[in-house]
Design a protein around this nucleic acid. Structure first.
Lengths: 106, 106
DNA sequence: AAGTTAGGTGACCATTTGGTCACATGTCAA
DNA sequence: TTGACATGTGACCAAATGGTCACCTAACTT
C-alpha cells in the first residue's frame, strides 16, 4: 500500500475523523482518554489509532506505560496541494470565506 | 450518510483519486474519455464517477448524449480547514515548501 | 510481592465495497 | 429509419473493513 493510500483510507472512517477532531482540540492524549469519547471498546479505538499512526496523521510519544497521541497536519496539507494549485487556492479560499461569513450573519 | 462522509469515502479509492488527477490536468472530459485511462470496464469507471459526483467532488454538465465532468475543489479546501487553522497553516506551508525545495535540489 | 492500570495480539464475524455483466434508454449521423 | 455511439440500472460475487473478544505483556502503586 502506498503512503497516500494509507492516508486516505485512514480518513475514510468517521470514528477516525472524530479522533483527529479530538486531537485537533487538544493534543497529547492517551489511548484510554480518547477511548472514553468513542462508543466502542478499547480494542476498536486502539485499532483506529493504529491506522492513523501508520498513515502519519498521528504521531505518538511513549511516556512510561502511557502512549501520547499528537495530530500531524502535514499529510492533510499535501492532500490540499494535490488538487488545488496556488492560483485556484485564492479563488477557493475567497469562496469558502464568503460562505462562512454569510452563515455567520444568520 | 453525511456530506463529509461521502467526500472522504469517495477519496478513499485510488481509482477515484486518479480520476480527480485526470480532471485536475484537464476538465470537461466525458465518461468514455476518462474510462480509457482506467484499467477496468466502463461500468466500473461510471460507478466511480457517480461516487465522486454524489460527494460533490465532481460536477457534471450534460451536452447531448455526452456527460462532461469537472473538478470541484471546494470540498478539498474544507478538509484542509477542518484540521489546519490559520496559525498552523503558516508553519505547515513553510515546512512543505521547504521539503519541496530540498527535493528539487537533488 | 501483589494488585491495578495502560496497552498489545490474533482470531473471528457481519457488513461494506470494487468490479463485472446482461440488459436498457436516449442521441447522433448517414 | 437504421445503426452506431454515450451512458444508465440492478444483480451478483470476491475481497476488504469495522468491531469484539479471550488472552497477553509491561509499568506504576502500596
Amino acid at each position: 500500500m502506498t503512503d497516500d493510500d494509507r492516508v486516505f483510507k485512514a480518513l475514510a472512517d468517521p470514528s477516525r475523523r472524530f479522533l483527529l477532531d479530538l486531537l485537533f482540540q487538544r493534543d497529547g492524549r492517551t489511548l484510554t482518554e480518547l477511548e472514553s469519547e468513542l462508543a466502542m471498546t478499547r480494542f476498536g479505538a486502539a485499532k483506529h489509532l493504529r491506522v492513523l499512526e501508520d498513515a502519519g496523521l498521528v504521531v505518538v510519544r511513549r511516556s512510561g506505560r502511557e502512549k501520547l497521541h499528537f495530530l500531524n497536519p502535514v499529510p492533510i496539507r499535501l492532500i490540499h496541494d494535490r488538487w488545488i494549485d496556488k492560483f485556484t487556492e485564492r479563488q477557493v479560499t475567497a469562496l469558502v470565506d464568503l460562505k462562512n461569513a454569510l452563515e455567520d450573519e444568520e
